[in-house]
Design a protein around this nucleic acid. Sequence first.
DNA 1: AATTAACGCTTTGTATACAAACAGTCAATG
DNA 2: CATTGACTGTTTGTATACAAAGCGTTAATT
Lengths: 223, 223
Amino acid sequence: MDAYNYIKEAIIHGKYEPGMRLGEEFLAKELKLSRTPIREAIKQLESEGLVTPLKRGVSVRHFTREDIQQIYDLRTLLEGYAASQAALHRTEEDIQKIKKANARYEEAIERYQEKDMNSIKEIVNFNQQFHEAIISACKNPHIYFHLSKVVVVPLVFRSFYWYNSFELKRSLEVHKTILLAIQSQDSERARVAMTEHIYQGRDQVLAHLDEIKKIHVLKEDSQ
Amino acid sequence: MDAYNYIKEAIIHGKYEPGMRLGEEFLAKELKLSRTPIREAIKQLESEGLVTPLKRGVSVRHFTREDIQQIYDLRTLLEGYAASQAALHRTEEDIQKIKKANARYEEAIERYQEKDMNSIKEIVNFNQQFHEAIISACKNPHIYFHLSKVVVVPLVFRSFYWYNSFELKRSLEVHKTILLAIQSQDSERARVAMTEHIYQGRDQVLAHLDEIKKIHVLKEDSQ
DNA sequence: AATTAACGCTTTGTATACAAACAGTCAATG
DNA sequence: CATTGACTGTTTGTATACAAAGCGTTAATT
């Protein structure tokens, strides 16, 4: 794995906590690389907004309540639109992909063990596949490109950390509603259901924002 | 000016044409720098989508008709939303800023000389200030952040290259309509007017897409 | 005692050297 | 004649060395 993805994952999973300073030398040692590739990775992360520039170096970005409100407003707008367009332009193949992702999501939820990192990673991953399948079904690759930067994965990951079994199942049901709307080309319903779904995710993030600053990464988690 | 901005400007103004390969060594000579800072700049431009990765190195991104359609769809969605929110949340100060930008825009249009690069640059610049003033009036800095990446400046620049005096004045009138709607907190009107305005810009780009591949950068333009 | 100047240490920015990967060419072989 | 293989030159990827800029601490002066 290259420097960019390594650092990104570390931020997503909370290994590098919000506010933590990321010195080049430090990262170079951590990844056993020289500073050159590290610097390039940092530049990219900076342009995505995952780290914020300091007077010297960067630190892991910290998101305030207000940030989260605003980011999710943006996300509902874009992903709601994507869902509505997907309903209009989806092919049979798109539908199969969405179904498949959601089936895997369902399986992962059944296997779910509270607060187990690998279990969460799995769920987050299939959830992401579901959303991405819809976004790519809208036939506007530029939406996909930009949404992948709007969706701040650390926040999504945190929201799943706090889901309980019931909430996961509810989220699964909403996924099914969205799928059905897209399948039956009901674009407005798809938009509204997606919008509501994302707002629920936002509420989850906001509800648990203060509880801990860091999700503890367990030993057995690091491969 | 740093490597990133230099290359970006060169792409915007057509000095580096779409499809042109940008080798590190070449850019290093051009900017009289070593490859190290060049590479960092390229990584950033890549993550913004201004250049596309090749098997080896990158080339200046070429936008197809379809790309332009899709990008502008996205832009209307976001900037239409921004205008509607600006209408709801604008302060008196915001209005003054928008007015001021538009006044300068008007002056620049009066001074306009067809196909003169500096004249166009000036107009593009004040137009941008107008749009940015509205976006920042919507009080969601994340929208600003992402819109600045959605709005592909090379395309905007090209569209202005082809505007004639009449079209510029019409665009000015639409600006005034948008301003009025924001001032009177008519959010839906602001959204619709902005959306229409951007679609007009898109039509302009599409209409002249084939005419030339490159806008010739005049000697006296390079400072 | 407080303010500032200067020094040294840490960290980032840039250049250069070297290693690795890729593309194109030419020759050998079926 | 086409296809494959090795060779060569070019370009990117990484490491390291050095330059420049920031920050903290200490010492000197008021």
